[in-house]
Design a protein around this nucleic acid. Structure first.
Lengths: 199, 199
DNA sequence: CGGTCTCTTGACGGAGTTCAAAGCTAGTGG
DNA sequence: CCACTAGCTTTGAACTCCGTCAAGAGACCG
């Protein structure tokens, strides 16, 4: 298991690709975060509970998903090392989450509550800038994904999956990929065998 | 046609629902924007051209859409009065737009270039906060829409359309609504006649 | 081992598409 | 102000993509 120091360095390095921080600012920033280790299969956030934080993944991998009226899960996001994850809707208003967030691998995360985040924005405007840029990029990729679902069929969405989450395809069970691209596990299986035969 | 003064008031009132501005700040803010009137059917942004600005719609209504390889249009967003619209992907990097933005009605917009926006963020941190909050809300609604496309069928997505864009259903041609919810105009027509018969 | 979960494969069914034709609406020019 | 045209909407029949259900074959973990 990685040391906390290493985790903080990962967070800082990720942020400093966007905004520069003095050593004092780095120390101050870190004090807003809380460490947590999450086991495989454990829920970091449970649907229906108040969403208190956004999580920075310094090791492992998580997913957020919603369960529909028929009991089917739909994956909103995967969060491998270096990514952020939360139920944005619940987070911004500190209201009940509509998503579950589950750890796919044993994971280590740094948590930032909404309250702490808003204090941080007042104390360090650079961080408001960092999150503004993060949000811009999230919006771009979510819209790109939406467009893919509107305009492409399952085979193409599957082929593109590997580009958004490089390397993740190898370690994830297929049923999770199926849930992300929006098809049943059975149909993804048929797609794959079709792709194999074609090559 | 509304006066420019009225348009500025709309912009300020929209922003001041989120952050408070002194009269001097209001004046300064306005100076970053550029007015433009757009005719019905006119393209405000053309796919392939550099995306220079984000637009605040003070009157009328616009839409952004992408055209796929088979020539089908897919609507990313409608922007009635009081909404913002741009091709976010092109805007943040001042690169070629992948979307067209077209005026559905005669419209009046206030434009903010990316360069001006970044200057504005340095000059008035409150505005960076405003846009950060705007982005949070856009992300929530885009993700909600994505989830709807993954988990609900066309009839339900159609019934929910009226809630995201209240009143818009009455003034839009059906083919645009079809394109937004992700079905062909023919199929939406069949859905509607089915809903009429049921009631 | 044994049991549960995942992946595969096949037959069938349903949501949504395609293509075509006809009626309707709305803008446009003379 | 009417006539014409172009685009929008409706409807139907055939078709496709993908889902459902079911059964069997692996894979993983205690």
């Amino acid at each position: 298991m990685a040391e906390i120091r290493t985790m903080h360095e990962q967070l800082l390095s990720s942020i400093q690709k966007v905004v520069q921080l003095t050593p004092e600012e780095q120390q101050k920033l870190i004090s807003y975060f809380e460490f947590r280790s999450v086991e495989k299969r454990e829920l970091l956030v449970q649907s229906g509970e108040i969403t208190r934080f956004v999580a920075f993944v310094s090791d492992g991998c998580l997913r957020s998903f919603s369960t529909d009226d028929n009991g089917f899960e739909h994956i909103m996001q995967f969060a491998p090392k270096g990514w952020w994850i939360t139920d944005m809707s619940g987070f911004i208003s500190e209201s009940p989450s509509s998503l579950d967030i589950e750890s796919i691998l044993p994971s280590q995360v740094l948590l930032l509550t909404r309250t702490a985040q808003l204090e941080l924005f007042d104390a360090m405007p650079k961080l408001e800038r960092y999150f503004r840029i993060l949000l811009e990029n999230s919006l771009v990729s979510t819209r790109r994904r939406l467009l893919g679902n509107l305009s492409r069929q399952a085979k193409d969405r599957y082929l593109e999956f590997g580009q958004v989450y490089p390397g993740l395809e190898q370690i994830l069970p297929q049923k999770l990929i199926a849930s992300y691209i929006g098809v049943t596990p059975e149909f993804l299986s048929k797609l794959r065998s079709q792709l194999l035969r074609a090559s």
